[in-house]
Each structure stands twice: as C-alpha cells, then as structure tokens.
Write a protein that binds this DNA or RNA. Sequence first.
DNA 1: TTAGTTCATCGTAAATATACGATAAGTAAA
DNA 2: TTTACTTATCGTATATTTACGATGAACTAA
Lengths: 114, 114
Amino acid sequence: MERMKRSLTPVDYSRGEETLAVLAKALSHPVRIRILQLLQQEACCFTGELTTLIPMAQSTISQHLKALLEAGLIQGEINPPKVRYCINREKWAEAKELFAVFFKIEGAESCDCR
Amino acid sequence: MERMKRSLTPVDYSRGEETLAVLAKALSHPVRIRILQLLQQEACCFTGELTTLIPMAQSTISQHLKALLEAGLIQGEINPPKVRYCINREKWAEAKELFAVFFKIEGAESCDCR
DNA sequence: TTAGTTCATCGTAAATATACGATAAGTAAA
DNA sequence: TTTACTTATCGTATATTTACGATGAACTAA
C-alpha cells in the first residue's frame, strides 16, 4: 500500500505549548505521579527504596525514573552503587507556573455548550 | 514465547493520582494544548473553524477533540450539521485545582541531588 | 582478585497513540 | 427526494509507551 503522510504541513507550536505537553506527558502515568509524591515526602530516595514502595519490576521503575529525568522534573545523584533521586526544584517551580498560567486563561465567557 | 505478565501485583492508585494522570494525558499533546487555548480565546468553536486554524486532517482534529471530551475538559453542543465545542468550566476548575495542589506539595527540603 | 550490591540498559511482547483517507451519519436547503 | 454541508467514525499504517526478565556497568567490601 502507498506510504501515508503523517501531516499536511507541520504545525509549529510555541515553546510554551511544547514544554507544557512534555511536562504533561511526564505526568500522564499514575506511577510517575506516585513517584513524584514519594520523592516530595521523602526528600530523597534511592531507586531501591522506590522498588520496595511500589510493586513493579526494578527495571520498570528505572524506566519511569528515566522519563521523569528526561522531562527534567527530577535529578539524580550517583552515590555508587546506589543512585539517589530528588525533585528538581527549579523545574518543579517552572512546571507549577506553566500549568497555573495555562489554567488561568479565562479569555471569553463560557458559552455553555451542552 | 511465554506470555509475559504485565505487573507483579497491581498497584492501586488513589482517585487523585488516577485523575491527575488522565488529565495530564489529555494535555500531553501540543495540538490539544493549542485547541484548548483556541477554545479559551474564542469561547466556542465549530470543528470546522478549528480545521482552518490548525493544519491537520479534519479526522485528526476530531480525534483530538474526542480525547479532550473523554477527559471532560471540553463539552460539545450539537447544532447540526455543526458541532460547537467549548471548555467545560467545571472540569477546568477541578483540573486547575488538582495541578495546583499537586505542585504545591513542598514536603521536605530539597536534598539537591546532582 | 573475587564476590556482592545497586542500578541502567537491552531485547521484546503487547497495548496504546497518532496520523491519514474513506465513509457514514445527520440535518438543512433546494 | 436529492444535494450539499459538517462532523464522527472506520480502517489502517506506523510510532510510541509500557511491561517484563536478562544482562551489563560500576562501585564496595572481603
């Protein structure tokens, strides 16, 4: 069959739109929400501590940690043979602000579609 | 090959964790961010208006609208043969609050992992 | 050096997401 | 009824995500 195009013209998104989408994607799995909450409460966690708190394979937890790391929401300190993670406060504040601004937009009045 | 298990014991997430993840997933694509911003600015939009504002196939836009609808962030008013969409203010406020509360957690001090 | 510990990465299966065109559903107008 | 218009859904190709176990990398301790 013929090759299918993936888009007519590429939509060009603003920096904010892209960033927000990336952050939202990082938050789009419940276990990552859980991990972030645990890191908030505990200040720091070794990967091993997380595996005792969450019934998932160690490799899966590591994979989710990587996703959070790539989104910039957490940072890791290599303390061999352990690795300790914590929230990246700077990025956290940025995300908090981005979501707040996004949801604050009140633009026009609701049209109350049903 | 042998069937692979998807999880050791199912992790049970709280209502808030699930809800936040669902909302985040809805926001995890830049075009959906764009659509929501447009709906905010314009109060209401017919699907057709959105297709003129966003260079994507009508079917694709419709698919994204469905995703936002399922997450509850928007609502539609059938006004045949058109359908007008707008933000669901109630859900919007709920989402705003959920994200705000989530990011507000300050728990312990940062451990400054590097 | 060897053994043990901790974590990341690889390989892979399955599910989900994302894009497109084609088609169906539904109403209004001719 | 027929035609035109708008939107949703279907079918499908491809990409990405998510889960697992197995293996590798890196450091410590014996």
